[in-house]
Write a protein that binds this DNA or RNA. Sequence first.
DNA 1: TCGACCGATGTTTACGTCAACATCTCGGAG
DNA 2: CTCCGAGATGTTGACGTAAACATCGGTCGA
Lengths: 340, 340
Amino acid sequence: MSEESPVAARRTVSASDVARAAGVSMQTVSRVVRDLDNVQPATRDRVREAMTSLGYRPNRAARALRSGRFRTIGVIMFTLSSYGNMRTLDAIAEAASALDHTVTLLPVHQRTRGGVSTAFTRLSEQAVDGIVIVIEANLDETEIDLPTDVPIVVLDSSRASERPVVDTDQAQGARLATQHLLDLGHETVWHAAGPDSSFSARRRQESWRATLEAAGRPVPPVFEGDWTTSSGYRIGLEIVNRPEITAVFAANDQTALGILRACHEFGRRVPEDLSVVGFDDMPESDSFWPPLTTVHQSFDDVGRLSIEILMAEIAGSKGAASTIVPTRLVVRDSTAAPRA
Amino acid sequence: MSEESPVAARRTVSASDVARAAGVSMQTVSRVVRDLDNVQPATRDRVREAMTSLGYRPNRAARALRSGRFRTIGVIMFTLSSYGNMRTLDAIAEAASALDHTVTLLPVHQRTRGGVSTAFTRLSEQAVDGIVIVIEANLDETEIDLPTDVPIVVLDSSRASERPVVDTDQAQGARLATQHLLDLGHETVWHAAGPDSSFSARRRQESWRATLEAAGRPVPPVFEGDWTTSSGYRIGLEIVNRPEITAVFAANDQTALGILRACHEFGRRVPEDLSVVGFDDMPESDSFWPPLTTVHQSFDDVGRLSIEILMAEIAGSKGAASTIVPTRLVVRDSTAAPRA
DNA sequence: TCGACCGATGTTTACGTCAACATCTCGGAG
DNA sequence: CTCCGAGATGTTGACGTAAACATCGGTCGA
């Protein structure tokens, strides 16, 4: 009945306003906000009431300043425009949110130097408690001016990193794909690779090669791609002219899709004349034509684990272990035994 | 030569540490940091040197507390797992970054009440200067406890909102698609709709209907979908049994892809027996089989404009105008004249 | 009955920065 | 030679919160 007038917007309601309204001290308000200690239920209710009627919202900046904690995780990625990155970010955001943390996107500026485009970022202000680096590049980490005192978890990195690494088990996935094709009876398996700048792509390629070698099969030259459907299409155009190729392992589903397109255009039948395996298991992959056999990776697990490890580091645990998330092969209709 | 020892990590370097090292006052450090005023070049250099050698980073919380500005934009979205949302977020992040702002993902918690799942979010703490709502739901805005004093821009909203709205011109896009099919000589066009909870989906449907009516064509019943390939596949299964259907406008590319799959499985030829148009123009769409005719929407423009408008609001301009971004039709191989 | 102890609440102070104001230096005009 | 002003730099005091410490009743056992 008192503060009804919605006249001029007061600036901001602070804890002391609430305290005055509830007839308690600021400190008690703080305790109620943080669900702390024993505050007498009656007092608590009185404070709560005052908070809602005044529309009080704790000032996060002040809180962070005082406590030194931002309850915020920073994420560094080059681009959101890839299926994997997006899914990973989604999972990270969800996991962080469950722990009552917020996710902020830390900008990465591209820089061209000596012909190579590298990333250069100056995280000039510390406003995060931890950082997840989801970056895909031949990136010298020194190019990113990272805070020294903030825990960091890295995805898609060389294992050489001293930081904790969380990643899909690229090697296992590529082996699954390659072995599947060999098991079907193909003499060997060709590979439509991802960009050399990606650690994931490199590991998939290495594992494909190792699997062939372990089976004593010839290792054909690699088709170089860059994750895109158009690079897959270009590779597909080469493949359709070479009847001796009966099986291809594509570095990701988009590349596989591009190959499928070339096959359609030139009448190369899949899987009768050519078996194709992808990697990622995008939601669309089961509707490609034919539905794509592919390696499913669990982006959700990767995102969730990276937050778990990061939070442990933030909480002070030293030397958190790196973690590898297994994949599984999803067999659909793009693979078959070679024609006799 | 002096501070070489990397012994124990000091806590944080503050402006006063820098001031001491450079032999100036904190205020001068602050001036240098903000590139302000006239600071004697010699002094400026001295301070800069001290900053780098000490590894000084301004404390963003303190800065925000003092200035009341966070240099941060909050983004509210249900899920990142849709092509459009992801692209929009990417564009928003880029635009914000160009203006030296950071983007944070504000979590939205799902809540089920009375059988309907609604969003409930308590943005309990204000830590953003403005908010972009990219939400797709029959959402009573009161369900989200938004700060009252923060500028907001809405995407994918009913036009009824009093807030500034930025969106793709859904109506124009749907008209383009429908008219294209009519122009090819189809008697009428069927529609594989998106979920009713999406304003975009509803507007595409309305415009499809209006276009048919304006052309004096019969308006067939709507196939109800939910953006996914599997709903498109389900719709496709119905279509393949009905030879009288010669043209379909799908609410998005995924739905179209599902329809294509059903056509392949049951030998309904596209575009000879059925013309299909999508909406979005995903990067994969030109590699579908056949390459998909679709409506291209410019997510980049939507993201960029939303930030422009939001920033203007933050800067104090009242009543920012809503904006509609045009689409364009991309004709590929999934559409043709009906067979005579 | 009294003192110790415990739970509930209040008081003080510092977190790091920036705005406002104060001061200081130096050159040039009168 | 003095005074004034402009530019350079320093000092003080919030911003809103939470940690540390202080205080104040009341309960319970000896």
